[in-house]
Design a protein around this nucleic acid. Structure first.
Length: 590
RNA sequence: GGAGUCUUAGCUCAAUUGGUUAGAGCGCCGCCCUGUCACGGCGGAGGUUGCGGGUUCGAGCCCCGUAGACUCCGCCA
């Protein structure tokens, strides 16, 4: 036995009893005579006092303790001397006076301090096992556990069954780049790690499971971001005989339960809904952050017959003129202005027209082209006031929305509009387009995935090959401008599925080799079904108030997919490659 | 693949316009210290300023290249 109590347990009532504690030396205060140690375990701190007159031998031993040594102490729980109680600690009324001290493990000089902010993430990841001792990391991981458990409890309660699906699965060309795993038994062939358990969960529906979920590890071999790791965890859900409303209700309840468990807040439900078209039109984003307004305002009516060629021309060509009003941002710096202009051009605008409202004056190179009526219309429509910055875009509708949407979020960052906010703005974005044309590949691709069901009222447009107009029974759930997850109602009819594959340019031969099992399953009594996948890492990140999912993953990889602690990936033994029938081309590993 | 920011002691940072021997706090080592809780006091060690080149009488600072980290774009059905 190492301990009888943890380090956040002993109180006044325990005075006079004996206890054993074990943990890490958090801080030592060695007065030459008396020595104080704050002993830490995951629950808290308890002060340990070594006094030479009580036990000279143990006190002598204690002089050699250093930060982060792991020790075990046994002794009497004593009241602190009157006036030396520490009200900052729950255990601040007592201390332990050990008559036994056992050093379980000594710590070398620490690579970095645990009680201070360390900005060198590289270093933290190299010593991740050490970094995890920081209270914030411990809190994040324990909170992640609460959220995961709440997921299981909630879905279990709703009758969902957790089922594991294969990690060694099959590569499909659609979607993200696969991680491949060579097969030894069948040389020259490869498994793929799942990008998502998509096909398996649909096949479970054909298998009559009706309500499935999984805390599923997913793998995508794409470039990393603050909120993207090559392996990540999804709360994967699928159900039979459901409509989108059934999924919305379930997920709203689930997310409310998770935020209750993780953050102790009540999330109002149901969540507001926006169609994809509305979201793009009003916010220029399919995952709008609505904690600030700055709506994209359509100015088509105002400039229909304008003398200003840039606006008039865009409208005559069937495009749009829109603007956002960045309230109080007329005072932006030259640098910020340059950045916004560069951004606008990067997303396809020819330039960035603006009006600064300063000292009652509209400062702008374009305002001289506006009639008085146009100015008045602008003022009332955009609620223009002193100090505002109005930014315009005139182009094709989708370019205008994209440009202003990007500017909108960047300006909000510059103005720190959401800094320190604890607001939780959940919403559904529905009616995504089913397909998007890829100019690069000169073909239509699935926006969500190829199993997504077109909306019934758009089937005729599908038949007419008017793909641009076809909307999907697909939906995303968004929180504060972050996509938490997305899903859809699936296709369960083999002929419709074949039609979609054809539209996506999947040959009949490929349909058979890649998806034959699914198409056959759809001929053996497949129930209508649909589901969703939620990014667990992102949910936990937002609950924790972190800005990177690396802060809520025990052993994450860095920007280049390297585990700095274990140094994976690594080269492998020539013999391992031979067993797999693999030979490397000339490129030397770094 | 591209863009931006950054890289000075173990950690967090400083170093005026390009100018003496690159500093501070924390940590580390030694000595002292019996009621602290960021304990305190005295002393000490610790630097190829990421690396390579260039400009200059002189470079941590300017220029070029390169490596790495992070953020973003592309990519992520």
């Amino acid at each position: 036995m190492y301990r009888t109590h943890h380090c956040n347990q002993l109180r006044k009532a325990d005075i006079g009893t004996t206890a054993m504690l074990a943990g890490w030396v958090h801080v030592r205060r060695d007065h030459g005579g008396v020595i104080f140690i704050d002993l830490r375990d995951r629950e808290g701190l308890t002060q340990v006092v070594f006094r030479p007159e009580e036990n000279a031998e143990v006190a002598a031993q204690a002089h050699h303790l250093r930060s982060e040594d792991v020790i075990e102490v046994e002794g009497r729980i004593s009241a602190r001397l009157p006036g030396t109680e520490n009200p900052k600690l729950p255990t601040g009324d007592i201390e332990i006076l050990p008559d036994k001290l056992r050093v379980l493990n000594r710590a070398d000089v620490l690579p970095f301090p645990l009680d201070a902010e360390v900005s060198n993430e590289d270093l933290r990841l190299s010593y991740r096992y050490f970094d995890l001792r920081r209270p914030q990391m411990t809190r994040n991981l324990r909170l992640r556990h609460r959220v995961t458990k709440a997921t299981r409890d909630f879905l279990d309660e709703k009758g969902f069954v957790e089922i594991e699906t294969p990690i060694l699965s099959k590569s499909t060309p659609e979607g993200a780049r696969d991680f491949l795993v060579p097969s030894r038994l069948i040389k020259g062939k490869f498994y793929a790690l799942p990008q998502a358990p998509q096909q398996y969960k649909q096949l479970l529906m054909v298998g009559g499971i009706e309500k499935y979920f999984q805390i599923a590890k997913c793998f995508r071999d794409e470039d990393l971001r603050a909120d993207r790791q090559p392996e990540f965890t999804q709360i994967d859900i699928e159900a039979s005989f459901v409509t989108p409303d059934d999924i919305f209700l379930l997920v709203e309840g689930l997310l409310a339960a998770l935020f209750r468990a993780g953050r102790g807040v009540e999330v109002p439900t149901p969540f507001p809904r926006l169609t994809h078209a509305q979201a793009m039109d009003e916010y220029g984003s399919d995952k709008p952050d609505r904690r600030f307004a700055m709506h994209l305002t359509d100015l088509g009516e105002i400039f229909q017959a304008s003398a200003f060629k840039m606006f008039r021309g865009a409208l005559d060509a069937g495009g749009a003129v829109k603007a956002i009003n960045a309230k109080g941002f007329a005072s932006l710096t030259i640098g910020q202005s340059d950045e916004l202009t560069a951004m606008a051009k990067h997303y396809g605008a020819k330039g960035l027209a603006f009006i600064k409202v300063e000292n009652g004056e509209w400062k702008s190179p374009i305002v001289k082209f506006f009639s008085d009526a146009e100015k008045e219309a602008l003022r009332s429509k955009l609620l223009v006031e002193e100090g505002d910055l109005i930014l315009f875009a005139a182009d094709k509708w989708d370019v205008v929305c994209e440009v202003l949407g990007r500017l909108r979020t960047r300006i909000a960052e510059m103005q720190k509009l959401t800094a320190g906010s604890d607001q939780l703005d959940f919403l559904w974005v529905t009616d995504f387009p089913l397909m998007a044309f890829s100019a690069e590949e000169n073909k239509w691709n699935a926006v969500h995935h190829p199993f997504t069901r077109p909306k019934a009222e758009d089937i005729d447009k599908l038949e007419a090959q008017n793909y641009r107009e076809v909307r999907a029974e697909a939906y995303d759930v968004v929180l504060n401008g972050v996509e938490l997850g997305g899903g859809s109602i699936r296709i369960h009819e083999p002929d419709l599925q074949a039609k979609i594959f054809a539209a996506l340019g999947v040959s009949e031969e490929d349909q058979e080799t890649l998806f034959g099992h699914l198409l056959r399953a759809f001929r053996l009594g497949a129930p209508p079904h649909g589901g969703i996948a939620l990014g667990l890492d992102r949910i936990v990140m937002l609950i924790c108030g972190e800005e990177s999912i690396r802060e809520v993953i025990a052993f994450p990889k860095n920007n280049r997919g390297i585990d700095l602690m274990s140094h994976s990936p690594t080269a492998v033994d020539a013999r391992q490659l031979r067993d797999l029938g693999i030979s490397l081309t000339g490129e030397k590993p770094v």
